[in-house]
Design a protein around this nucleic acid. Sequence first.
DNA 1: ATCCTGCTTTACGTTAACGTAAACGTCAAG
DNA 2: CTTGACGTTTACGTTAACGTAAAGCAGGAT
Lengths: 131, 131
Amino acid sequence: MASRTVLEREQTWTIAQIAEEFAITHRAVRHYEELGLISPERRGTIRVYHRRDRTRLALILRGKRLGFPLEEIRTIIDLYDAPRGRRSQLEYVLAQIDERRADLEARRRDLDEALAELDTFEARCRADLKA
Amino acid sequence: MASRTVLEREQTWTIAQIAEEFAITHRAVRHYEELGLISPERRGTIRVYHRRDRTRLALILRGKRLGFPLEEIRTIIDLYDAPRGRRSQLEYVLAQIDERRADLEARRRDLDEALAELDTFEARCRADLKA
DNA sequence: ATCCTGCTTTACGTTAACGTAAACGTCAAG
DNA sequence: CTTGACGTTTACGTTAACGTAAAGCAGGAT
């Protein structure tokens, strides 16, 4: 094995690696950038992705799985690294968090209801099987 | 108060009432019908909605809130009143149920993670406030 | 008879989230 | 030096889920 650089000077990734790892296309990655969801470094013309971008991508994809539109996802994840500086800002952020939480909890209620219905439905099916 | 019909001969609704009650548009209701998600009775040319349609609409809207595409929602709710007759059918349905459950549970994991992150993020904000 | 209200169909428009193709720069390997 | 392998921009295409007219029927009120 080749020796590693002793000072790991912050790892970076290419767009191909990112796409591969997150199982999406280059196009999708650039699309998220167009919408301002990520903003990779540029070395000349080429995009260079850092851990920060990967974190954001993970959040984006989870947001998608949860059914949020990309624009909304952007405002949400922007919250996370907003400059939590002035008091007014902080209070605004806290309010936003409350909204988000309410939204997510409503979804969880829906989800739990759906799961419960699945259960009772499965029970009916199993009963039919024995008959 | 006017006297009610003693034999309540199964209540029905017009498209306007349905749209109003579920807070959606006539267009959306018809759209769901085009995709085969509901199939109201026809009296002449006019659509007549029964309780069955209302049940389905509720399921549709919940599916939407959970981020499922309409086509998928259709196959799901069709399951609910599939002719649970022959054994082979039943086993197929049970398999489908398992898939659905896996899907929903994955979503719940995502959701719970998101909520957890919101919590820790809120904590950080509150800490900043005291500083 | 005519007008209004509610319902209908037909059909084109719109937004979101990419897909897909074209056309071009670049750098290391053959 | 030319050929790939990757990367880039530009731009039109596509699917989903309706929105939005346009145009017409049907039955009750005026």
